[in-house]
């Protein structure tokens, strides 16, 4: 998303003629000052050199290293072997599982989060609204270890909710449920994805004007029709944009899954983690980089879709 926006920014380099005209019309000279020569133009960027260098060393260099190693043998020669290895067997399965996990937890959270946002927009109680949005901001920022422990304590093998349910005669572990599986991870991921959805969708839902509903009713729409032909289409871009964010968030998450399943669940971040920790087959040292490249590609696609959709969603929120 950032890259496209970057390309759209006009270059500050101006034509010579424009620059020469600058001093002649001091009143029109922009406050940033128009650089008069090539040197001045370059000097204008001098102040961000430390930032650019820092950013390059600590983010760009590692990322580029992953991308290039994905196409290299251990000896440094070009090869497709890592990529093909990453698209086979357990690694392919881990991509499928990761996509499945992210899609299901993002989809579920998106739908339920929108319902909660609508319920919240429906209350006239300002205090309740304030408490729920604040709580959402807090819950959207949980995750990682504390969340994993909280779910082990409630829905784990010996968790409290599990105990209560089995005392009532329905032990979820006798019915195929386990918090340590993909299904369990979906339940846990929704805990931080759903509130994020509420925060993102609330402005969009608030933007649904009652006048539109009334206009639809005037034209003979029933409640269901008004939602189908007005409400849902208006919310759709914001919904889909948010869905991309939730998907990315779920796809990149490592800590929660690692803590909950102790690294035993075959999703991509965990696979990469276990490769980093040294569980590598001989000759496959760079397969981890190929998996990393795969993650970057998936996230970049989602981010691009997000940027497009966000643009459309902004239309209805003015």
């Amino acid at each position: 998303m950032a890259v496209t926006r970057l390309a759209g920014v006009p270059s500050p380099a101006r034509s010579r003629i424009g620059a020469d005209r600058g001093p002649a019309a001091p009143g029109r000279r922009s406050r940033g000052g128009r650089p008069r020569s090539r040197v001045a133009r370059l000097l204008r960027f001098a102040g961000i050199v430390p930032f650019v260098a820092y950013f390059a060393v600590f983010l760009v260099v590692p990322s580029v290293s992953v991308v290039s190693s994905a196409f290299e043998t251990v000896g440094g020669n070009f090869t497709w072997a890592n990529i093909t290895a990453a698209l086979q067997g357990t690694y392919l399965v881990s991509f499928e599982k990761s996509l499945e996990l992210s899609a299901i937890s993002a989809g579920l959270s998106a739908v339920l989060g929108t319902v909660v946002a609508i319920a919240l927009a429906s209350t006239a109680n300002v205090a309740a609204r304030r408490v729920v949005t604040s709580a959402s901001a807090v819950f959207a920022n949980t995750g990682g270890l504390p969340l994993a422990f909280a779910f082990i304590a409630s829905l784990g093998n010996f968790g409290i909710v599990t105990k209560v349910l089995s005392a009532m005669g329905w032990n979820p572990y006798d019915h195929g449920f386990s918090i340590y599986t993909l299904t369990g991870l979906v339940v846990v991921y929704c805990y931080f994805l759903l509130p994020l959805m509420v925060l993102v969708m609330l402005p969009a839902v608030d933007g649904l004007r009652r006048e539109w509903f009334e206009a639809a009713s005037l034209l003979g729409a029933r409640r269901r029709d008004a939602w189908r032909h007005v409400g849902i289409p208006v919310l759709a871009p914001a919904f889909l944009a948010a869905l991309m964010v939730l998907f990315t968030d779920a796809f990149a998450a490592y800590a929660t899954a690692a803590a909950l399943t102790n690294g035993s669940i075959p999703i991509v971040p965990i696979q990469i983690g276990s490769l980093i920790e040294g569980n590598v087959l001989a000759g496959q040292q760079n397969v981890g980089d190929a998996l990393g490249l795969g993650m970057i590609v998936v996230v970049a696609v989602a981010a691009t879709l997000y940027a497009r959709l966000q643009h459309r969603a902004a239309r209805w929120q003015r």
Binding site: P62, S63, V64, I276, I296, V299
Partner: peptide, 14 residues
């Protein structure tokens, strides 16, 4: 846009 696990991979590599 770059998942943390990927940054770690890159750190080991670079």
């Amino acid at each position: 846009v770059v998942p943390v696990v990927v940054v770690v991979l890159g750190i080991y590599g670079a």
